[in-house]
């Protein structure tokens, strides 16, 4: 752990490097994000729904692209030996990857989710939809963490894409599943957001799952003995 603090400069350099490599993509997403929030902000039912679909798509695409581009491709394009020849241990390299990807994902995720919540709160859209929006957004975050973990632990394009496909297919099942739950369904069209034990339990499970995935990834990375 002490070496970690001694090496924060190097971890910072690697995060900046990832930002520089991905900034073109991120710039594109930022533009798309502004458009998405602008569309949702038009506050009609159609624009809100179109904006919400765009937002989900955007969140999935951002996650998928960052995991593939910054992790899987580093192995595939054989740039990993170059980075690992620098004064960093493979464990800290993996940590830098985990951190840079999380930061680069969570920032747009937060902006888009908060933007969406702001639209709901400040428009005639039923506030009862808020728990559903939060649960789906956190699901997308958890799914992202799943394929981020897969990418980091396997560096395999095949496995990572497989996990992406499975988690993204399950999103529909997840939405339908929670929509059918009476506790969530009944409060859906209420004027105010009502959190009950069911929605809170699902949220806690999602967050817990996400934390477990991240901690487990970090732990397994530290135990790895063979890189390249």
């Amino acid at each position: 752990m002490t070496t970690l603090f001694k090496n924060t400069n190097m971890i910072k350099r690697l995060i900046i490097k990832d930002w520089e490599l991905m900034k073109k993509g991120i710039a594109g997403y930022m533009a798309a994000g502004i458009v998405t929030i602008g569309i949702m902000g038009m506050a009609t039912e159609i624009t809100f729904n179109v904006g919400a679909i765009l937002m989900i798509t955007l969140l999935i695409v951002i996650g998928a692209r960052s995991a593939v581009e910054s992790i899987v491709n580093e192995k595939k394009d054989q740039t990993m030996p170059f980075i690992l020849s620098l004064p960093i241990s493979p464990q800290h390299y993996a940590l830098a990857k985990l951190l840079s990807n999380l930061v680069l994902y969570i920032v747009p995720w937060l902006i888009l989710v908060l933007g969406m919540l702001a639209v709901i709160i400040s428009t005639p859209i039923y506030n009862g939809v808020i728990p559903l929006v939060v649960l789906v957004s956190v699901y997308i975050l958890a799914a992202y963490c799943c394929y981020l973990a897969t990418a980091l632990l396997t560096y395999s394009e095949g496995f990572t894409i497989a996990v992406m496909i499975v988690t993204n297919l399950l999103i529909n099942a997840f939405i339908i599943g929670i929509m059918r739950m009476p506790e969530i369904n009944q409060t859906f069209k209420a004027a105010t957001a009502s959190w009950n034990s069911t929605s809170l339990t699902i949220l806690a499970a999602e967050l817990g799952f996400t934390c477990v995935i991240l901690v487990l990834t970090a732990y397994l990375q530290q135990r790895k003995t063979n890189f390249l």
Binding site: T3, K6, N7, M10, D77, T79, F82, S85, P87
Partner: peptide, 25 residues
């Protein structure tokens, strides 16, 4: 090594035939 590789690598230069640089840069 590998415990103190970070300090050691400040003075080690490594290049290999399977090492690639970032194509877009």
């Amino acid at each position: 090594l590998p415990e103190h590789q970070v300090q050691a690598k400040y003075d080690i230069g490594f290049a290999s035939d399977d090492m690639r640089l970032y194509k877009s840069q």
